[in-house]
Design a protein around this nucleic acid. Structure first.
Lengths: 199, 199, 199, 199
DNA sequence: CATGAATGAGTTTTCATTCAT
DNA sequence: GATGAATGAAAACTCATTCAT
């Protein structure tokens, strides 16, 4: 097997394992077994386990970038911006649909913890989703929320949006916004129109 | 110190450390040092490291639930649903603002990897954000996107929403949607109205 | 066993092994087997293998210092300087006689290489000694060298003196002496009087 | 390049590296990089790393032997024995001066340990030298020791002589001398005359 | 309950050597 | 002879957990 191919093969096996078991739970032993190579061989292609992981992220980051950026070729002036937005969403979904492992890795689910702990986390997340979905469902019954809303989808969109923003505001060491009232208003202004019926 | 108090104290020190260094990087040694207790003592309060971590998640999950759920007391019939939505967002922000450690832990940033790896991930995430923000900025210049949009905020909301949904669809082992076209349309229908100027 | 005692015990077993097999050939596994402790235990007493070795050197350096320095208490004014010199030599011999392992470690014989290589080195050294001894023997027969000279002893003294000086001059990065002629004269002036018959 | 030349070239590069970093710290990778040859090639010239090292020692041992032995040609009957002694010392110094790497290798400084450990050892050795030099210095002030003595030189000669003898007596597995008193007297008898003023 | 010395399974990484090309 | 990718035995070190005091 030529070296380039072998390198890719190792990355591929590693990807699968990292997605499945996470970074810490995936051992070099697992990777070499899966790849059918000797212990030392992996260190000829990658400096160490970290390096291997970083190369993996890099590779798929670049893949993502080129996948999603394809529409750069399009005639932006001619296309409807909302269509363009939808197309980008589509491309992103396609990217992850085509490689579920990567979505697992990038979205951290496979990164951190061993299965038991992951399970606990998932339970919590589901409860949060349920709560949001319940709210939306109530809203539909009360005639406030668009009746054709896909509840699970909307719950995920909202939770994802909100949690990431909370992390961005409070978890990264940035100066958090002084006026949470105003921040909430801005967030609501972005998310409400697609959720609620027009007044 | 009475046992209950000590237990809470340990949880508190552990929370700080988990938020700072992540689950794997935080060692029992760190926790006992920080808590000023003996190595064996921690096992008097928690079955093991995992148990300690799960108790932590549980505790703050419950705190979050009660914080965010306060408005259950409100007269839902009387309050405008969009105001209610905004209020929930506000409460959520307050919860995380009041305990940034928790946002770090819950949002996984502190969970998985050691600093160097985290840094690589962050770099990628920033590039993704930048790309989204650039798109939005272009949209504003072209008159398609609401001109008062907070770019960084919107980029986080969109990225968070989309990535979580991708994970929900493709990373959790659920049956993914057959028609990605339709999924994109539904996502766009929810997110676009708050982003773009009305046609 | 109390911790202090155990630490000393480990140092003691390690000393024996380092003297026997050298630093690199002595493995942590050897030490813990010899000491009858668990793998992790040794790391409670020493940061790592290097640290263990350095502590060992330190310990015996201090021991040497106090052994050899005892005569500091003596009334220097009253004692004959040559006697004093002889006493110091005596003390040094006693120190090493009392702990041959240490002489092996300090004198580097046990430090570096595995047995086979050591053997090669020793062969060379013996040839050097022989050559010196042959010279001296010839000198005795010719009536130039003190007839009561202990040949092996003198050969060791001369070789040790000369090699160390060569290393001091040329192997340590110091500015070497410009005039080797003069250096030789000075060395000879020190070593000859004890070797040769008075003219 | 012809095979013989190449072999010498490899030995030469290896010598430099062994002197610099010691046997264990010098890796085959270092040698082939320095020599500009392929990994496998070195095994065409030497059976293994040990063999390479032994050949190196052999080569320079022979060089030393022929350098130092040149005076065998001299008319021994005609030359003053002390001059002869001085000449030999001179030749030895010249040999090592001409190839400091070899002095480093032979004198073990480069053999054994990595830099940090070497540094610790050197510190101890310097302290020993200092102690000897201090003694000598005191002797000069008191009028016992020859006032023109080169202190550093004398300290090295004495330390070298004594340590090697200690090793010879106690570190090599030989039957050590029963009477250390007598051994000290013999050593002193050899070393004193060149150090002290005649009574 | 509290303590902390002891444990040992588990993991990464190194590096001399081989051998098919 | 030369090459360099592949090998795998070997070694140091980690760290959650236990248990006698």
């Amino acid at each position: 097997m030529d070296p380039k191919e072998r390198r890719e093969m190792i990355l591929d096996k590693a990807k699968k394992l990292f997605a499945e078991k996470g970074y810490h739970q995936t051992q070099i032993s697992d990777i070499i077994r899966e790849a059918g190579i000797a212990r030392g061989t992996i260190y000829q292609y990658f400096k160490n386990k970290d390096d291997l992981f970083v190369r993996l992220l890099e590779k798929y980051y670049e893949k993502w970038e080129s996948t999603v950026s394809l529409e750069r070729d399009m005639n932006l002036a001619a296309v409807d911006p909302v269509d363009y937005f939808r197309l980008r969403i589509h491309r992103t979904l396609e990217f992850f649909a085509g490689d579920p492992d990567i979505s697992r890795i990038y979205l951290r689910m496979g990164l951190g913890l061993h299965q038991e702990l992951e399970a606990v986390i998932k339970k919590f997340e589901e409860r949060i989703m349920d709560m949001i979905a319940a709210d939306l469902s109530l809203g539909i019954r009360n005639g406030h929320v668009r009746p054709d809303l896909d509840l699970a989808l909307a719950a995920n969109l909202l939770a994802g949006a909100l949690l990431r923003t909370a992390y961005y505001y409070f978890g990264t060491g940035r100066e958090p916004p002084r006026d949470l009232e105003e921040a909430s208003r801005k967030i609501s202004a972005i998310l409400s129109p697609g959720i609620f019926n027009p007044a």
